[in-house]
Amino acid sequence: MNKISNAQLFSVLFSVKAFSLICSGVTADASQMAGAAISIALQFLLAIPMIMLYRHSGFSLKKEMLFGKFGKLLYALFFIIWGAVSFNRLWGVSKSVYFPVDSSLACSVILAAVCLYCASMKFSALSRSSLIISGIFIFTAAILILGAYSKADLANYIPATDFGSIIHNAVRNFCSSGELVMLFILLEFSSADRHRGVTAFFVGSLILTELVYIIEITVLGKIINLTDFPFFTAGAFSQPFSIQRADSLYMISFTLLCVLTVTLQLVLTSVLVKEIVPDLKYNTLLSVILMLGLSALLNSTGADLSPVMGVLIIMLSVVIPVIMLIRRIYNDKKTGADSSNASALRVQS
């Protein structure tokens, strides 16, 4: 995989965050806003050990992954589950917003075919596309804000006072933030001064989350409780131009972000799988089939994978990186002590 610049690291993660935000079915309220802010601040703190780990000279995740191939398998598994969840989100949105495709499964298969094609390109194509896609999303958000300006009623915003609810929302937000795991893997491919890209991502993520929530709350008012996907309903209500419903317009951004997210998950899965089983052929195709299958299973059983995702996120973005950092510091100290002993011996001799 090619190296990615800080701007590309930012845009890749920002696009993934934007996708999960616009197809979030969670009812936005003030405690949700406060919870999201706390969760993002916490994620930023947890990203520090990751950056510190990559600052160690010669560190390579490929070579020093905790538990070796098993560790990589865990990450691959996470991306497959997340990919399935992304497909599931597409299913949900396709039912709620008008998609001119007969079934949600067909919708997912078409998207999977496009993602397969996109994943067959170089990683640089993905990172470059992410910059353009995030630009398109920001433009869409600007149109939404423009339309929402006249429809928004600030009286709909009631400040949050229940601390318990804020903490509950913070935990829930954290458990759906797979971007932290993705960040850990992507840091391997990013260039120097990683902290710039990471900081920009968390700042951007915070601004975007709060902006989307405030638009949803002020535009929709109490109707927010009736809708499955508040972002699209807010889009439909805001009507920036003299059109009846604008949500079809937001479908462009949604689809582009969805393709980017799933492609990224596919690429990362296939890179990890290739490291685990180097001789395996068609690993991208296998990964997408697994994602689609799991997604169909989730859809038919109605199972909620959020707790599993939460546990995996904590393990893969908190536990493993921290253990690896401690191990690396210990090894560095040991190597430093050994080399100083060796030099002392050389001096003596």
Binding site: F99, V101, M121, S124, A125, I132, T255, L256
Partner: peptide
């Protein structure tokens, strides 16, 4: 014509990736 704006966006994504590659 077949998949509406969803189809246009999907093909647009494929073209964008091709362009970026």
């Amino acid at each position: 014509g077949i998949w509406g704006i969803f189809g246009i966006s999907l093909f647009g994504a494929a073209v964008l990736f091709n362009m970026c590659a």
